[in-house]
Nucleic acid binder design. Structure first.
Lengths: 343, 343
DNA sequence: CTGAAAGCGCTTACAG
DNA sequence: CTGAAAGCGCTTACAG
């Protein structure tokens, strides 16, 4: 491996100073046309590349976003957000350090500490776990954006209109003639954050049912421990035993996928025997049949989070004066898993 | 935002030099117990954190791996590899810069250039596109690991035994009594890299069929343009029209998911009407029924790639002297989508 | 229009 | 056992 060329090497080749090379490189300040040409030639000849590290140290700005997230697999929601974050980052000349914490608070902490030491310009928590970890980042003077499930620690945030999304799903089913609609929740942090995402979705379900004159039975509601296939499967089997349910709304496509497996296992068909609606629009398009689902704008969530993060890192003085909290809309994606109730 | 404390601040508080602080921090070199205590107290008091940036510049080592990959969504294969890479990285004190290229050569190039400028210690291409982009990294003196689909450019690599995987799938189906087995391929770069992944899988299929005395008909073979739902769906519909096929082997779970949708749409059941085997073990567990599939050790692929990358970055002199090419085994994961042929 | 020089926060060979 | 000092590769205020 040969030594890389530095700005000084370029300056020497061009018989100019590093200051002039820097001016040409960044296109600012006065440089004579002749000098500019000499510099450009020297860069060409040496194959010089700027050392971002040195630049970052000097400018006290790394153009790096630390993205701390639950896990990019298997829940594609997080992968979708990450792609949005990365896209907006790149567009602005930033790069993304990624850190999956698997919902482990210790691993989240390690991520925060690593990001601080690496001088990231901002940290995005796509679903923070421990409030004190979020606080540690803020304490260190780093702009923070909490996504989807903000803790009680105040910071910029990007959230989603879960209530309305849930409403859309249930209205769709009621519009198709369904009355006995099961609800499968599974927020891992239900009732911990306030109000939890799945509480909002439950509220949307309940309010819409009642508004339409349907009093949901206690047995129509079930919460898994996680957003897991197993919970979806198990709860769906309970629902099938009940005998009255004709449609099911699950708060995550993974839960819906599990429910679908139970239905399939019992030799029933969707939507002929039971209609099914998911949430997220991650696995929904891949299932048989393709699922009607409440779409979360994952990519846009990521873009928005990154945009706020970058803005905040540029004018840190504003922080934490004006906190931005952007709420994004969800929308119903109708596919083949829902149909009119037949009598 | 207050200024962060530096090593000099700590040294001042402890009434010692930065050299001594550094020694304590890294636990090497001689430091008297008394001095060590003073330093530790000063660190405690100031909340000092090491500035990795400065360290990296000085040591000429960033402890950063650049992971250039196709896209973490929707093909979870890449997400799985990334998780492996990250896990091994963290274990060794490294961080991961992520870069999705969406199979766009220009975006891949931008990623390589960014990684070079940011002085990453190694670059992992989880599926390189342009050989010259791989070459650019090597040219810059950066250790490279190509994963799964190495280009003709020589570098470290982690590959998968696709041929055997394919063999396992087809033997499984033949063992269940199937003879007319359809093959759905969709390697986006089939016949470009040599030999392409899907060519290997096709060879495994063909050899196994012939070894068992079955001469596959031309119509039993079909390639999509991509690993897409649409291609899987379309090809499966063709297969259904044929009338003789009783089992299908798809080279990607996404293709299998599409095929499953076609089968479902035609009111047929898996495995009762047709058996189905996928490849990857990404979507397979989530489908109805859960799919028998050839599992790729995604996590281990990532771990292996990161391990090689880190080793290579530490002893660069070896590079490119001894190139490591590790091949990982696949295995068949039998689930509910395959059953004995009933006459 | 151009350059000398200080400095970002570390590390480390060297002297004592 | 400890510290002074050079240097990693940039940027930038300042002088000319």
């Amino acid at each position: 491996m040969r030594k890389r060329f530095t700005m000084k090497d370029v300056a020497n080749v061009a018989h100019l100073s590093t200051a002039t090379v820097a001016r040409v490189l960044h296109g600012q300040g006065f440089v004579s046309e002749k000098s500019r040409k000499r510099v450009l030639e020297a860069i060409e000849k040496t194959g010089y590349r700027l050392n971002t590290l040195a630049q970052s140290l000097r400018r006290n700005q790394t153009k790096t976003i630390g993205h701390l997230l639950t896990s990019i697999s298997p829940n594609l929601f997080f992968a979708g957000v990450e792609l949005g974050v990365e896209n907006e980052a790149i567009k602005n000349g930033y790069s993304v350090l990624i850190w999956n914490d698997f919902e482990d608070p210790k691993r989240e902490r390690l991520g925060v500490e690593t990001f601080i030491q690496r001088q990231v310009d901002a940290i995005i928590f796509t679903t923070p776990i421990e409030p004190q970890n979020v606080y540690a980042a803020i304490e260190a003077g780093i702009p923070v954006v909490q996504v989807e499930r903000p803790t009680e620690v105040k910071s910029h945030a990007v959230i989603v209109d879960n209530y309305t999304g849930s409403t859309l799903a249930v209205e769709h089913l009621i519009g198709l003639g369904h009355q006995c609609i099961g609800f499968i929740g599974g927020d891992p942090r239900a009732f911990l954050t306030s109000p939890s995402v799945d509480e909002q979705r439950l509220a949307g379900y309940r309010d819409t049912m009642i508004k339409n004159g349907i009093m949901p039975k206690e047995e129509w509601l079930a919460f898994g421990k996680y957003y897991s296939l197993e919970d979806g499967y198990r709860i769906m089997e309970q629902f099938l035993k009940l005998g009255d349910i004709t449609a099911v709304f699950a708060t995550c496509d993974i839960l819906a996928a599990g429910a679908l497996q139970a239905i399939y296992q019992h030799n029933l068909r969707v939507p002929e025997d039971v209609s099914l609606v998911g949430f997220d629009n991650t696995y929904a398009p891949y299932l048989s049949p393709p699922l009607t689902t409440v779409e979360q704008p994952m990519f846009e969530i990521g873009i928005t989070a990154a945009r706020i993060a970058i803005e905040a890192s540029i004018k840190k003085s504003d922080f934490p004066g004006t906190l931005k909290v952007e709420s994004l809309a969800t929308r119903l994606k109708v596919r083949a898993s829902t149909s009119a109730l037949s009598f």
